[in-house]
Nucleic acid binder design. Structure first.
Lengths: 172, 172
DNA sequence: CCGAATTGCTTTAAGCCTAAAATGTTTCCC
DNA sequence: GGGAAACATTTTAGGCTTAAAGCAATTCGG
């Protein structure tokens, strides 16, 4: 219950109360736990991909994006989807074209645009890796009940929306 | 409800049913959403740290670990806590010693061990950054109710335990 | 004791990643 | 049409990250 003096402060604030020096320790702990979970799982997946298939996680992620887009994607599309910088994608694609997993061609209608696709080899290898990858994920989350999974999905969707809104406030 | 043939299969499996080619699509979607949330927030924090304080996220994370350990930590401790490789810490520490934020000395009792601490400057700068950092996190999670936060904490704790168990099965 | 593991850290080689600047292309609009 | 703005990508410079190999120092077992 805010004190009267706080209510006065709240008036000249925009959307959120100024509030007395509040701690937000809970949110901080939540963020650290979220980060820990992701780092843990990501490290495990990275290691398994390397050991079983001698492939890096970024390469796998890029191929996963392309597997869902049979007609190919532009580098910008990939960059947005993967939430990484443009320059990053350039190098990643370079190496995957080199190894024969990707096909890259300049768009006929817009010469700025590069369209990339999985090659036959790339698709076959990705499918093989993805099948096993799915079992790893299932195993990593094995102790969660279906209800836990649903609830986490819901709360993470809410988290994502909240974070996007906050990021948008800063970068409109 | 598993079919009879599945139950037979379940008998010769260890802890978890073999089950017919199961899809696990829900767990996969959960993992991708978890990753998206983390990437989104991490990117936002990284950008703000750079713009406001001209500091990188890994440097900030390292300083955060040391702020909680007034008597210092060994590089191994830091490596475990941050869940990054040893070699990574070596370089990170090198740069932070160089910039005057960290103090590094060899342990008196075990000459293999390097103990690092925040310098006065390092601690002061970290505290300044951490205060603002906490408000960013609060803002990014602003749409979650206290109940949401509690529930997420609980489910992520369960997720972490599940993933650790799974990782441990592979690397005992 | 003393050699064999183990431990703590660093080095190496390769790749990932970002922000910012640069380059070439297209679109917009006057 | 012609210049300005917007766009897609690449380049650049620097830092982060990992796995694996290497080097000391310590501990352990006989």
């Amino acid at each position: 219950m805010p004190a009267v003096s706080d209510c006065i402060n709240m008036l000249d604030s925009e959307t959120k109360a100024v509030e007395t020096p509040e701690d937000h320790a809970e949110e901080l702990r939540l963020w650290l736990r979220l980060l820990t979970c992701t780092t843990l799982i990501e490290g495990e997946v990275r290691g398994r991909l390397r050991q079983r298939f001698d492939v890096t996680l970024p390469r796998f992620d890029l191929m996963a994006q392309l597997d869902k887009a049979p007609d190919g994607m532009t580098l910008s599309d990939v960059s947005k989807r993967m939430m990484v910088s443009n320059g990053n994608v350039t190098g990643l694609v370079e190496r995957l074209v080199e190894s024969g997993h990707l096909d890259r061609r300049t768009s006929e209608t817009d010469r700025r645009v590069q369209v990339i696709r999985l090659t036959k080899l790339g698709r076959a290898e990705f499918r093989r890796m993805a099948a096993e990858h799915e079992t790893w994920i299932a195993d990593l989350f094995a102790d969660l009940t279906p209800k836990d999974v649903r609830e986490l999905m819901r709360l993470l969707a809410k988290t994502k929306a909240s974070a996007q809104k906050s990021a948008g406030r800063r970068r409109p």
